[in-house]
Amino acid sequence: MTDVPYAPPTQSRALKIALRWGLYLMLTVFALWYLLPLFVMVTTSLKSLEEIRTGSLIALPREVTLEAWRTAWSGACTGIQCEGLRPYFWNSVLLAVPAVLISTILGAMNGYVVAQWRFRGANIIFALMLFGCFIPFQVVLLPMARTLGILNIAGTIPGLIFVHVIYGIGFTTLFFRNYYVTIPAELTKAAKIDGAGFFRIFWSIFLPLSLPIIVVTVIWQFTQIWNDFLFGVSFSQAGTQPITVALNNIVNSTTGVKAYNVDMAAAIIAALPTLLVYVVAGKYFIRGLTAGSVKG
C-alpha cells in the first residue's frame, strides 16, 4: 500500500449554489402540492353556490361571502334538524376536554408506576397495556356497547368519555412510561430517603418535569378524540353526537343541489380545533417527542 495524502473532495461554488436552489425549488413544489386541498377548501367556502357552478375549482373567489360559514355553523341541516354544527361542536368540546384530561392524568400515573416502582409483574402489565394500543376499534364495538348499557351510560356524553379514556390509556401510559424511564432511579431513591411518599414524589418531582410529554399526550389524545368518527357514530344518539358525525350528516343528507361551499366551511370548522392545538403547541410536540432520547 502506498500513502496517498488525503484530499477532501472539492465542489465548485456555483455547483453548490445550484444544488441549494434546486433543493429549495423541490421543497416549495411539494409544499404547494400538499397545501392545494386546503386552498381549494378555503376558497370554495368563501364563494357563493352560483360562482362555484360557473367558476373554476382553483380560482380565487370573485366576491368573498361568509354566508356558507354562517349556514354551516348555525343553519345547515343534519337530517331533520337544521341547527348547523354549533350544538355538535359543543358536544365535541364537552367530550374531548374531559376525556383528554382524564386519560392524560391516568397515563401519567400509570407511566410513573410502571417506570419507577418496579413491582412484581410491572412489565407484564405494561405489555398488556401496550397490547391495548393495537386492538382495532371495530373489535371492541359490541362488548363496549354492552358495557355502556350495563353502566347505564349508553348514548350519553359521559359514556363516550368513558370509551375514549379506556381506549386512550394504553397510549398515554406508553408515552409517560417511556419518558419516565429516562429519569434516573436515583432521583426516586433520594426522595424516598428525604421522606417523600408515592404521591409526593409524583407531584413534587415527576410532574414538574413532565411538561414536554404532557403536551405530546394532550395533542395526541385531543386529535384522536376530536377526529374520532366510529365511536362517535356507534355510541351516541340524537343530541349527543360529536361534530364528526354531524359533519357527515350535513354532507350526506342534503337533497337536491350539493352545497359545496357549506360542506367545505363545515369541514374546516370541524378541523379547526386540532389545527389550532398544533399551531399553539406544535413546537413543544416535536421537542417532547425527542426529549429523553438525548441525555441533557
Partner: peptide, 26 residues
C-alpha cells in the same frame, strides 16, 4: 440516614435551596 448518590440525584426543577430543604419540608 442521609445519602449522596453517584449522579447526585438533585431534583431538576427545584432551586438549590429547595433541593436542600425539600426533606425538611416533607
Amino acid at each position: 440516614i442521609a445519602m449522596v448518590f453517584q449522579s447526585y440525584a438533585l431534583y431538576p426543577t427545584m432551586s438549590v435551596a429547595r433541593n436542600i430543604t425539600f426533606g425538611m419540608q416533607v
